[in-house]
Design a protein around this nucleic acid. Structure first.
Lengths: 259, 259
DNA sequence: GTATGCTTCAAACGCTCGTTTGAATCCCGA
DNA sequence: TCGGGATTCAAACGAGCGTTTGAAGCATAC
């Protein structure tokens, strides 16, 4: 393996390999992308992957790190800047989300560092089932997650910390799934008259959704509500047992008391 | 291949194979799970997969369908029942979400039809990168998605249809990602003092988040806001160019005007 | 008992996988 | 011009993949 130089040399073989890996990973995931697919697309010799990256795993680590490291460093930098401006006052949710989204959008607009598929890469990386990637990501970016969680905790003191952890998780889910969205994109375009969508519009749609979710009234976790209305676990396979429509419209099952 | 009987015969080989495929799919996804892993775990001969299911693809179709078909049929049945009760009045969001969640929870509580890993299966299926599964799911369950979308459209007339399509997509994302959550689950448990979580509590947390998101104020898609504040796409690779902190705290970038 | 049809089994098929090898080639400083 | 490290290359390795084969087992009906 060549000296793992500080990512500066614009080695054309390395670069083309990384690009091809990126493109194929978007479509097929880690397990679904073979080195032969990559090297064929990159017009690079098969052995070059092991020479430059030490193997498939090393290649994907490098491919993800060169994109995500930049973004996440910028994210915490921006967050710190906002906090500096705000002084002692806690940041608004919008501001914290801006610290998350702006670096991502900047990379998506910069064809030299990510380009328009960057957001999709981001989403795919977070939902890939391969233990190799999952371990890599959760280990490498855990500090950044903690950093933002703390910011949200300060921003939303009325939401209990534990509850907020979950909501951040939900948020990350909506974000990843949306960004990774391949077919869903087309599905939505198909359900509606064609309209040119782009990443920026998408995130502008997503933001109020997430903000509202984060600030939602707290659930009543003790409410029996939902469970009691579940059909008996091993009863008649269909609740069709009562053929006559029940005269008492059965109590509406409430999942929570949130309005 | 044996007569594809109406899923009635409790053939032990078929059953053990499906179970093993289910368990391994949860951990490794479609591409990451080999037939040899499955047949070893199921203590079944390798060739039995091709005999009973016609191949790997057929096995996974059967594995997913026997779980998801039941749930989705129950979902639309429940939705129709609620609509019947409501008459002409549109259903509340909570009610529609209940029609989605209750059948899922019922299966998760029923160890004979899914069990506690059912929700995880549901989430994993929706984020798996393999084209084989993506095609299968989007084709097979598209009608159910359309059905629920219509219900939401009637329930939230103030949200424009196109906007609502996106919000349902976000919702599905938060749901899938959360349910599939493997490491994240542990991560959250690690950030907070241990507390026994379960699927029901989880969905009760998730519901207000989703409801609030669905009902959020509409984004101002024309607002310049965010874009203008992005760093110049090909400027200095770091905004570190200005070493002195800018005296004018730069205008706070707003992603949207949503409060 | 024997024929029949469904199911299981061990073995092998052809193929692709990630990785390794050792020689050929390139590039640059001496 | 030559020498030597860096890089590329074609070829092969062993392992694992999904699938196929044909015989063996095993019930049930005659």
């Amino acid at each position: 393996m060549p000296a793992a130089n500080g990512e500066k040399t614009a080695n054309p073989t390395r670069e083309r390999t990384l690009r091809a890996a990126e493109a194929l990973f978007l479509e097929h995931g880690f397990d679904g992308t073979s080195l032969r697919m990559i090297t064929a697309k990159a017009k690079v010799n098969l052995a070059a992957v092991n020479y430059h990256f030490g193997g498939k795993e090393g290649l994907f680590h490098a491919m993800l790190a060169r994109r995500l490291d930049v973004m996440n460093e910028e994210r915490v930098r921006l967050l710190a800047e906002y906090e500096n401006e705000a002084g002692v006052a806690p940041l608004s949710c919008e501001r914290i989300l801006a610290a998350m989204f702006i670096p991502a959008l900047a990379l998506a607009r910069d064809t030299r560092r990510g380009g328009k598929d960057f957001l999709k890469l981001l989403g795919r990386a977070y939902v890939d089932p391969s233990p190799v990637l999952r371990g890599f990501l959760s280990e490498r970016y855990a500090p950044m997650v903690v950093r933002f969680k703390d910011a949200f905790v300060r921003s939303l003191p009325e939401i209990e910390k534990h509850e907020l952890s979950w909501r951040l998780h939900f948020m990350l889910g909506a974000l990843s799934y949306t960004l990774a969205g391949a077919d869903a994109w087309k599905l939505i375009a198909q359900l509606n008259p064609v309209e040119t969508e782009n990443d920026v519009l998408l995130l502008r749609r997503l933001t109020p959704f997430l903000i509202a979710g984060l600030k939602a009234p707290l659930p009543d976790l003790d409410s029996p509500g939902l469970l009691e209305t579940l059909p008996a676990p091993r009863g008649a396979s269909r609740a069709r047992a009562d053929t006559t429509r029940p005269e008492t419209a059965r109590a509406a099952p409430s999942i929570s008391k949130a309005a």
